[in-house]
Simulated scan of single mutants.
Amino acid sequence: MADASPKHDVFQAIADPTRRQLLKLLVDKEMAVTVISGHFPMSRTAVSKHLRILSDAGLVRERKVGRETRYSLQPEPLLELKRWLSYYERFWENKLNVLKHLVEIDSETGTDRTGPNRLKDDQTPD
């Protein structure tokens, strides 16, 4: 029985900046590999290898149209990434809330937080 799991996971696939650019390029429309290659300063073979990794991760679908291979974005596997990142979002939100509080205090009181009484990085306002 063949293993149906992807050869590459989403995290590996998007780790490369070229592959992230490829995904961005395919957001709105299906494109032929020859057209896609024109957007990158590398050979068509190199672009095809990146597309193969994205395809193996389930992020793009390839379709033969005559002698041409066309690629389109399949965003569903990105949900795994979104779920993973959402866990860490609470840390960002906390930092943003502290920053918002500091800015609001400064604007209400006219306090200069760059002087000796400013909060240190690891302190939070009362």
Rank of each mutant, 00 (worst) to 15 (best):
A2L: 12
A2C: 11
A4H: 12
S5C: 04
S5D: 05
K7R: 13
Q12A: 06
I14L: 07
A15P: 00
D16G: 02
P17N: 05
R19P: 03
R20A: 03
R20S: 02
L23R: 05
K24Y: 04
K24G: 03
L25M: 11
L26C: 09
L26Y: 06
D28Q: 14
K29R: 15
K29T: 11
E30K: 15
A32V: 01
V33C: 05
I36S: 00
I36R: 00
S37I: 02
S37V: 02
S37W: 01
H39R: 15
H39P: 00
P41I: 07
M42C: 08
M42H: 10
S43F: 08
S43V: 05
S43A: 12
R44M: 03
T45F: 08
A46W: 09
V47R: 00
H50C: 09
L51D: 01
R52P: 00
I53N: 02
S55N: 15
R61F: 01
E62D: 12
K64L: 12
G66P: 01
R67T: 02
R67S: 07
E68W: 01
T69I: 11
R70F: 03
R70H: 15
S72R: 13
L73A: 02
Q74A: 14
Q74T: 14
L78M: 07
E80I: 06
L81T: 02
L81I: 04
K82E: 12
R83W: 09
R83G: 06
R83I: 10
S86H: 12
E89C: 07
F91M: 10
F91E: 14
W92K: 12
N94C: 00
N94V: 00
K95C: 08
K95V: 09
N97L: 13
H101A: 10
L102C: 11
V103E: 12
E104H: 12
D106N: 06
S107W: 10
E108Q: 11
T111M: 11
T111C: 04
R113A: 10
P116D: 11
N117M: 11
R118G: 15
L119I: 08
Q123N: 06
Q123G: 05
Q123A: 09
P125W: 03
